[in-house]
Nucleic acid binder design. Structure first.
Lengths: 170, 170, 170, 170
DNA sequence: TATGAATGAGAGTTCATTCAT
DNA sequence: GATGAATGAACTCTCATTCAT
């Protein structure tokens, strides 16, 4: 139990490090790089995440969970913003939302459930037309997340792009 | 001259092969795989494209050029469709349109010019509001191309997603 | 004293576990596996046996000691049987008897002494010809132990193989 | 075809090197060691033998084939000698004859066939009793091969040990 | 003394790239 | 120009051993 504290701290450090490293260098960044950034040895990374993919999956799920948690206090509009924020911070969400071969189906489903509620609220508020379905909203979120990766993406461009999507949903 | 013909044929075969291979297995596919698919030896691939990145760049530019050529006979709506088609065929465009780190700036600029014309026509036809700028259209094209990668992307979902975007541009 | 009891119990548990684990998975089995089987943590294994080789040596010596103890109530024939039994139970004896590089010289010498007596008795009983020397008997024991490892080794095959060797000693 | 010469030479060099290295350091010796001994880079070893196990299997089969070839000009007695020779030269035979998890079943069967003939001849010549079966002869060959590994194995000891076995077969 | 997390040297394997033929 | 074998740096993962708790 005592040692557990260190372990928990390390696990967190590794996840944080992994987020940063993969965000900066993409998913091909080395496990070694992650370890260094986290200030631990490679072995420690592998003890916590037996496979590089496990690590990837973990940070993706974290990202998705973070987003799912936000849906409570969001409208569809602010949620699009949040997704873009997350996508900019960790390049991973986009891979997560997109079609990686990694097993994150459940986390994705969880998010989809929350987005469904958001969509229903938006419909009730007259901000989304009744015919809109969740899957296209998810697709558009993915799309927005992806577009947000561009280096040239300014605050202004971002605002204009999201505006188009939101207007399209009405 | 006879050899030159072979070389030209090989270059084409390699590009075709690369498109297929990278479309199927993603950009981490092996140069060796490309060579096999093209029916040549690895050395030949490297003679034509000194670097794997060169090969990647080449097929991206091809994709972008193909799209640029289409703008003549397109409206904004049909062009979105075309981009999605190309994105589905070669997974590369999306990387090309997106922020890959590869040097395809010029090809991208060429496409942007053509899209500008398309946008102007759309505005003239009342299909895009006057305030819309090219960069957000490019962003949305990228976004659509990306969303199109999903395995779950059905014809119906595609239609609905693009509809949202197009409606948003009006 | 109370703790000492624990320690003693642990040492025994580790040895037993190691026997089973190495018998099943060969000498490349992990120290971790041994620890789990013994129901202790790795650290404990290393406290008792500073080196994996030490552990290997310990269980080998145990095996050899077990066999040495048996010589009192054996004839050459039944002893061959006993060695084969032990070899089947713990894959280690065979390594022990063979040329492992591990330091078990003394234990081996102890066994050799006992076998010498067995051989003398056999000669007296007319079951081994006078010219036979211990070293070839030891070699044949090793050989039998090794042959016994085969997966295909049936009770019948075993009996026939040992019969040949025993007949050869007469 | 031209390069093939180099490749063939390398393949042979690797096999030879592997034999020596594994004979000296056992099957846990590194692929890197093999490569160095062969005077090639690791990649070359893996090009010829995609897996370390493939390499192991290859030299085992070579050994077994070498032995199988010898049966033509052997009697049971001289064949035992030959097996022991081979076992001393390459530690691998013994592993091959024994129960490795490696897939050499066919090569082993091939050898068994030849030994069957040798046994039949021995029976005809009155040097093996009619009741002896091949499987125990194979077991004894394995056993002899194994015993031969001992560091202490002198020419004299070897002769005496094999004599016991051969006498037992009569 | 026991625990089990951390270490880090290595092992097997891959792959872009080079170069002899 | 084409071939495909060779290269070797790099990468993922393992495991004996150490050490903080």
């Amino acid at each position: 139990m005592a040692l557990r504290a260190d372990a928990v701290r390390n696990r967190a450090a590794i996840l944080t490090a992994a987020s940063e490293v993969f965000a900066t260098h993409g998913p091909n960044a080395t496990t070694e790089q992650v370890a260094q950034q986290a200030g631990v040895a490679v072995g420690t990374v592998f003890r916590h995440f037996p496979t590089k993919d496990d690590l990837l999956v973990a940070i993706m799920k974290e990202s998705l969970a973070r987003l799912a948690a936000l849906t409570n206090e969001s409208t569809l509009a602010t949620f699009f913003d949040a997704v873009v924020d997350e996508a900019v911070r960790t390049r991973m969400v986009v891979i997560a939302l997109g079609d990686s071969g990694l097993d994150i189906g459940d986390a994705l489903q969880g998010l989809t459930d929350n987005v469904t509620q958001l969509l229903d609220q938006a419909k009730a508020a007259g901000e989304a037309r009744p015919t809109v379905q969740v899957d296209e909203v998810m697709a558009l979120l993915t799309a927005a997340a992806y577009a947000a990766q561009q280096a040239s993406w300014t605050a202004d461009l971002r605002q204009r792009t999201l505006a188009v999507i939101l207007r399209g949903l009405e």
